[in-house]
Amino acid sequence: MNEYRIKTEQLCISYDKTVVVENLNVQIPTGKITALVGANGSGKSTILRTIARLLSPQSGQVLLDGKSIQTQSVKEVSKKLAFLPQNPMAPEGLTVFDLVSFGRFPHKTGFKNITDEDREIITWAMKTTNTLELESRFVDELSGGQRQRVWIAMALAQQTEILFLDEPTTFLDMSHQLDVLELLKKLNQEQHRTIVMVVHDLNQATRYAHNIIAIRHGTPMCVGTPKDIMNKQMLKDIFGVDAEILKDPRDGILLCVPYRMPEKTD
């Protein structure tokens, strides 16, 4: 197995001629969960979307299996990498089964009907995400947690080994956040999927990710395991807060407790 199937080389990203990410060089460990963390507006989602080929860089490149992702066709990339955006929207009146079936499109030619093999994969994806009993329900009638599981089922139906998610727990309550994160952990542990996600809650990142990329103004300031990078200085540099670092007595996972904004000096 390639240790790093995804890499960036001197990646520069700009919006309206304003550079937001410059000379980005990161490697995504294969078969691990990587979390991108940082303050609002730090460039996390922009980086994620560019690596996933949804945005074109100004310069530099993203390498997927040793080839520039920009030179690979949409269908070729879609067979390797699935992307779940933040707060995705489904057309009104679409059933869960129909939405999950969209994940099979990269594997089809033209407008062929769903095959028995497709149906087996769709059913497997819904079983894996505990959404099979919802297959006849309309997506817009589901709760937030149910919808997020259904979207993940659609991504699984793509049968890719790499899954990108942009803040997958946004707008979910605490129990549904943990539900989604536990599902992603299960997919990584049992199916060895490489998962890359933007995470808003740093404590969730330290609990569920093997690798963390902490970003400030479009630049990775710290990269490594939670134990490697979790310290008071990182929290001050990346998030602008003073915080205590505590160790969960149950499993030793490092957690942060912010308590104030540091005083500004002239």
Score class of each variant (00 low, 15 high):
T129S: 01
T30C: 13
L187D: 15
P220N: 09
G240D: 04
E92S: 14
E244M: 12
D98P: 07
A90G: 04
P249D: 03
G240N: 02
L156F: 02
K67T: 15
S59W: 09
A214H: 14
V74N: 15
T34A: 02
I152K: 04
L134C: 07
L181R: 15
T95C: 04
G66K: 13
Q86V: 07
G224N: 04
V180P: 08
R260F: 00
M221E: 14
P29R: 13
G145L: 04
L246C: 00
H200L: 06
D179A: 00
G66A: 10
G103Q: 03
G252Q: 06
L254A: 02
T30V: 12
A214G: 14
D228R: 01
T115K: 14
Y208C: 10
E92W: 13
F138D: 10
I212A: 05
D248Y: 11
C12V: 08
G38A: 11
V199K: 08
S143R: 01
M261Q: 13
L187S: 11
L54T: 08
T46V: 01
K75I: 15
G224K: 04
L202S: 09
L36Q: 10
Q159P: 06
E263C: 05
W124M: 06
M230W: 01
R119N: 11
I195D: 01
G110S: 07
G38E: 10
V241W: 03
T95Q: 05
N25H: 12
R119F: 11
T206G: 01
P29N: 12
A125S: 07
I51E: 02
E135W: 08
L55H: 13
D166E: 06
A125W: 03
V77W: 07
Q191F: 13
T219S: 12
E22Y: 08
V19I: 11
F83S: 09
A52E: 06
Q27E: 15
D166L: 00
T123N: 14
D16P: 12
N25K: 11
T50K: 05
T160C: 10
T170A: 09
Q158C: 06
P91Q: 06
T129V: 00
C256D: 06
G60Q: 07
Y259V: 10
A209T: 03
L99R: 03
P226M: 06
P168E: 07
K185Q: 15
L202Y: 14
M234R: 12
D118N: 09
L81V: 04
S45A: 05
K232L: 11
T129Q: 00
A157H: 07
T206L: 04
V257A: 09
N130R: 00
L84C: 00
T170Q: 10
T46P: 08
K264E: 09
K80G: 05
S175G: 03
P249R: 12
M230F: 03
I195Q: 10
H217E: 15
N40T: 14
M174C: 10
L235E: 06
T71E: 13
V180T: 05
I33Q: 12
N2G: 05
I195F: 10
A52D: 01
G240Q: 06
Y15N: 09
L55P: 03
P226A: 00
H200V: 07
P88Y: 05
T206K: 01
D140Q: 14
R193F: 14
E182G: 12
T115P: 12
G145N: 00
K127L: 10
P168T: 03
R119H: 11
R193L: 15
K32F: 15
N188W: 14
G252T: 02
